[in-house]
Design a protein around this nucleic acid. Structure first.
Lengths: 248, 248
DNA sequence: CGAGTTGTTGACTCAGGTCAAACAAGGTGG
DNA sequence: CCACCTTGTTTGACCTGAGTCAACAACTCG
């Protein structure tokens, strides 16, 4: 993983993060200035690189600028369970502001760009700028809500619905971050990753995706996926976005 | 659900809560005094009563004094998925300090006693007493860690391991709260509830419990369960408590 | 006592896992 | 430019863990 000190540029590495915080709480210009003034470095990672490993003690906090990431845990038999996906603007380890040791892995699932900020600076920001503290709180609580929905997804829905639900969530979150509508979005997941996120095997994921394609809901183009019938897809998933708490 | 204003008594309704906060952060006497001074009412609930309903907008925050509670969500087919269990001292809806609308239900699973505190007072406590704020943060983040573990549990472990893991977690959390060791603990779950928490049917839970009993790990006495071989049980569950972040 | 819960067991079914083999598409180094 | 490797997709045949259905037993409490 290549890392270098960021140069002065016309686009701040905190642009996506500020946009996200603004969606979570009414941050003002002083808040924004405080974020932009954070000490930091910009790093790059290649698909499959680990950003945080279970059991380590992170002393920097990272946020995604570009690309996608996933949190995962390993089962006894070596099976990986992905517990969430992340998009640009997401803070990937807000939990280490208050917990010492990582209880799961964070990996990028595509080539990605990240900002790293010393944990202490991030913690100071949260306390000295109460509105930012509130945004952090809301972010962490929404993450928890998403985990709860995943327990339901994996525990109670059948394979096809489960896959569709997970994809719906990803698309809606991307759209809420202004990163493209359902029909425009190319989903960046391998079938293996979809399986690891839904508790299914990649073989079965493949079969279910074929059925979804045969039903005219999605189109598979080589390695990537597109939704062609968003309403139908959403209905097939039984998706209700309330748990994402998008309205502030 | 019967509710009344608490009388002056020798035991504060906040005793368990203060003990829990103390395990999460180094709260001092002024912090404790601030908790004890919170406006509140004490309420009672009977097994299966709802404390919070999905979609509602709670304006009071509640903590368990005595008894057990569970968070749950409903699937399309009417199936219930329990996403966590709670023990005395737990705050049941810290998320509504910062999120308006409930995204899941909270139910007691036994007769229980609770303290209700106005949300605004709780929020003020978190900001005016930074150490308590930190305790709240750690509590919320540990909850999230538990949800992640549950995604793994439901997604990747087989039925017997899954049940054992869920029970291990409950026992370890109880023990950490000083509520009894593994061998002393009578587990308060119906097989239906164990099934709802693990994504299994109560019929299959019954079969797995029989196997665990035949293996000499547990004993079933009428409707309740006891662990007789904690080490063996823990091994059968592949349980590692790291994700509970018990060491402060 | 009677009614609603829970627990127990057996017979049968099926969604999803397992195993195995081909195939496709980049990427890389000679 | 080709040979080769890696990573991902696809399909088929077969198997099994967990669900479903149904009946009954045991317990609790109003």
């Amino acid at each position: 993983m290549d890392t270098h000190i960021s140069m002065i540029s016309d686009v701040s590495p905190f642009r996506q993060l500020v946009a996200k915080l603004r969606r979570l709480a009414p941050i003002d210009e002083a808040d924004e200035a405080a974020v932009l003034a954070l000490p930091h470095r910009v790093g790059r990672a290649r698909a499959r690189d680990y950003l945080i490993r279970e059991g380590s003690k992170p002393h920097e906090c990272c946020a995604l600028i570009d690309g996608y990431a996933a949190r995962s845990k390993l089962g006894v038999n070596g099976g990986r369970q992905i517990v969430s996906f992340h998009i640009p603007g997401d803070i990937l380890d807000i939990q280490h502001l208050f917990l010492e040791r990582a209880d799961h892995n964070v990996q990028v699932i595509s080539d990605a760009t990240l900002v790293w900020v010393p944990m202490a600076a991030m913690r100071a920001l949260a306390t000295q700028r109460p509105t930012i503290g509130t945004a952090f709180w809301r972010d962490a609580l929404i993450d928890a809500s998403i985990f709860r929905e995943w327990v339901l997804n994996v525990g109670r829905r059948d394979a096809k619905t489960r896959i569709a639900h997970m994809l719906c969530e990803f698309i809606v979150r991307r759209a809420a971050a202004g990163l493209g509508t359902a029909e425009q979005t190319q989903l960046p997941f391998s079938q293996e990753e979809i399986g690891d996120a839904t508790g299914l095997t990649s073989v079965h994921v493949n079969r279910m995706l074929r059925e979804l394609a045969e039903a005219g809901l999605i189109v598979r183009k080589g390695r990537s996926l597109e939704i062609v019938d968003w309403d139908g897809f959403r209905r097939a998933a039984g998706f209700d976005a309330a748990y994402l708490h998008l309205a502030a």
